[in-house]
Amino acid sequence: MTAATRFELPPELSATEPPEARGAARDDVRLLVARPTGSIRHRRFRDLPTALVPGDLVVVNTSPTAPAAVDALRGDGRGVTVHISGPVPGGPEEFVVELRSPGGERVSDGRAGEQIELPGNGSVVLRGGHPDEAVRAGSRLWRARFDIGADLMGWLHRHGRPISYSYLRRHWPLSAFQTIFARPGTADGHPFPSAEMPSAARPFTHPVLAALAARGVGVAEIVLHTGVSSLEADEVPLPERYRVPPATADAVNATRAAGGRVVAVGTTVTRALETVAAADRTVRAGAGWTDLVLGPDRPARIVGGLITGWHEPQASHLLLLEAVAGGELVARAYAAALAERYRWHEFGDTCLLFGPDRLLPATTTTDRIR
């Protein structure tokens, strides 16, 4: 499946540093608000509460970010960076990894059985491709087993750093990649959290949360641990671990029954909520691994609004955006963001996309056009 939204991203629109490095607050990034009816509006993220109405529910992801990038050496002495995506489904002693060159390019000559030397006298062995373990050479992702003689998360906090890509000017500390919602907790009992930041929530600040509460907008939580985001254009999202607690399921159902809109903070929250959404547009509590791929054949049932960053051309996340808000609105939003020089990636600007009012009770839709 391919998203309908098409665009070219000028490299100068990549955010190369956090807004704090420019003396700005996290909530000072720009916020584009796009509705199926009405014009596109340009605001600051601190203005988010004014775009919502009393009775709406904002759902956030509390997964923390791991220092999941480790500099290492291949057997021939070449440097390599190992990106740890997370545990293999059903294989608690194996992890999915991606290999990158020190300059950030994908490594295409890895092979099953290769041993890579890690800091602290550790090593990792590539055991087979992922998701197809039968691939023995040239896989982008690998199933791998670590031999580090220590707890992985403790070892990563000593030797790892956050995954970052070439558009960033330098490496930033782990604190720059944590949202205010991040806290210890697992979706499936495994201690490894998100490989990359659930970045849609990064602009949230305590003043924004206070303003949401004063507005009468609720906040609920889920957990979804993200894998690496560097998918190829034709790759669907990998299975990810999630948990939707009973309190959040109850809040979502109560919000919808009362005519409110459920607003997901990021594609991670959208995937988790839609995983537990029934055909009658109710949700249940649940946890485990989700392989749900939203798109034309599976539009959103529950999520009526989506706060998200700006995604790469041909990224699979664009399909999810279109499943929530429709291809026409997503295309309009991206065209406006390019025209207004919005900034891309995890330290960049944001948008709020509203889905069609078919997701709301019929008696309330006329009151939602604002």
Rank of each mutant, 00 (worst) to 15 (best):
M1V: 01
T5W: 05
P11C: 07
L13S: 08
S14D: 13
L31T: 00
L31V: 03
R35F: 00
R35D: 11
P36S: 08
L48V: 00
T50C: 02
L52T: 07
T65F: 00
V70G: 15
A72H: 13
D76E: 14
G77E: 06
E94Q: 13
E98L: 11
R100T: 04
S101G: 13
R111H: 10
G113T: 07
Q115A: 10
L118T: 10
V135R: 11
R136D: 14
S139A: 13
L141E: 07
R143V: 04
A144T: 02
G149W: 01
G149T: 01
Y165R: 14
S166Y: 06
S166C: 03
Q178T: 04
R183A: 03
G189H: 07
P191D: 13
R202Q: 08
L209W: 02
A210L: 04
A211Y: 03
A211V: 00
A211P: 01
H225M: 09
P239E: 09
Y242W: 09
R243M: 06
V263C: 13
G266C: 07
G266D: 13
L273Y: 06
T275V: 02
V283N: 14
G286T: 02
P296L: 08
R298N: 11
P299M: 02
A300H: 00
I302S: 14
G305V: 01
G305L: 09
I307K: 13
I307W: 06
W310D: 15
S316G: 06
H317Q: 14
L318N: 04
E328N: 11
F347M: 13
G348P: 09
L352S: 14
D357R: 13
D357N: 06
A362H: 09
T363S: 15
